[in-house]
Amino acid sequence: MNYLLGKENDREGARLLSGDPELTKMLSGSLSFQNRYTVGVLSFEEVNLPDDDKRAIMESFESSLLAGLDKDQYNMTWIEHTDKERLELNFVIANVELTTGKRLQPYFDRVDRPLVENWKQVTNHEYGLTDPHNPDKAQAVKTLNRQNLPKEVQQLKAQIGQAIAHQIEQGNITDRKGVIDTLE
């Protein structure tokens, strides 16, 4: 909550949309589960949306993600961020089913990712939002992630990183240009 709202509830561009941050913190803090809360964000390319649309989107997301639960069975706080020239609807869910006190797992990636992806596509279409899957938004160059790199490349990258770190420690590199010159 300190990140979402600011330590003194003074974060610029942050606004509480629904829920009770103090109650969410208190509930989460009282749990003995390993993962006491779930945090996520709905990020939009749009700078802002009408408040009625935000509320409808949040309610739709809740009913999709927490299908089968009534609002009195879970605790969820929504906080808006508009400080990055885009709209972000952040949420925090205390991982407890309130009527039983049992652990609540609101999102299990392997199972829920397709559900959330489908919800996103429908919502983007319904509200005329930017489609992140639009071919015009595709990156011209795809980069491999660390897990997909061959072992030899991973080792080479590690060696380069160590060599650069050593040169920085020795005082031979003091800025970006120094790193580039060393790599060249």
Rank of each mutant, 00 (worst) to 15 (best):
M58E: 05
D53R: 05
K54S: 01
D51H: 02
T38Q: 13
E59Q: 12
E62Y: 07
E62F: 08
S63F: 09
D52K: 07
T38S: 10
E62Q: 07
E45H: 09
T38Y: 14
R55S: 05
L42M: 14
Q34L: 15
P50C: 11
E62V: 07
E45A: 08
G40F: 03
T38M: 05
S43L: 10
S63G: 07
V47T: 15
R36E: 02
S60E: 05
R55I: 09
R55Q: 15
Q34N: 03
E62K: 08
E59H: 07
N48Q: 15
I57L: 01
E59V: 00
I57P: 00
L42D: 02
Q34H: 13
I57M: 05
N48K: 09
D52W: 09
P50R: 14
K54Y: 04
K54C: 02
E59I: 10
E62G: 05
D51R: 02
F61H: 01
E59Y: 10
D52E: 12
E59W: 08
V39T: 10
A56Q: 06
A56H: 02
E45V: 07
S60Y: 04
R55F: 15
Q34M: 02
E45L: 04
D52P: 13
G40W: 04
E59F: 10
F61V: 06
Y37E: 14
F44G: 02
A56K: 03
V47E: 13
F33R: 10
D52Y: 04
L49A: 00
V41E: 13
Q34I: 14
F44I: 07
E45N: 08
F44H: 04
S43C: 14
D51C: 09
F61D: 03
V39I: 13
L42E: 04
D52T: 11
N35S: 12
I57V: 15
Q34G: 08
R55K: 15
G40V: 07
T38H: 14
R36N: 00
I57N: 00
V47C: 08
Q34C: 09
M58R: 11
D53A: 15
P50M: 07
S63P: 00
F61M: 01
A56G: 03
G40N: 06
D52M: 09
S63K: 15
F61I: 00
V39D: 11
F44Y: 10
F33A: 13
S60D: 12
N48Y: 11
T38K: 02
N48R: 04
N48A: 12
L49N: 00
G40L: 09
E46A: 06
P50H: 14
Y37V: 01
T38V: 04
K54N: 04
Q34A: 10
E59L: 15
D51K: 01
V47F: 12
S64L: 04
P50S: 13
D51E: 15
F44Q: 01
S43H: 00
F61E: 00
D53T: 06
I57D: 03
E45S: 11
F33I: 06
V41F: 11
Y37N: 08
T38L: 09
E62W: 01
S64E: 06
N35Q: 15
S60H: 08
N48W: 12
P50G: 06
E46L: 02
R36Q: 14
A56C: 08
S43Q: 10
F33Q: 10
S60K: 02
N48F: 11
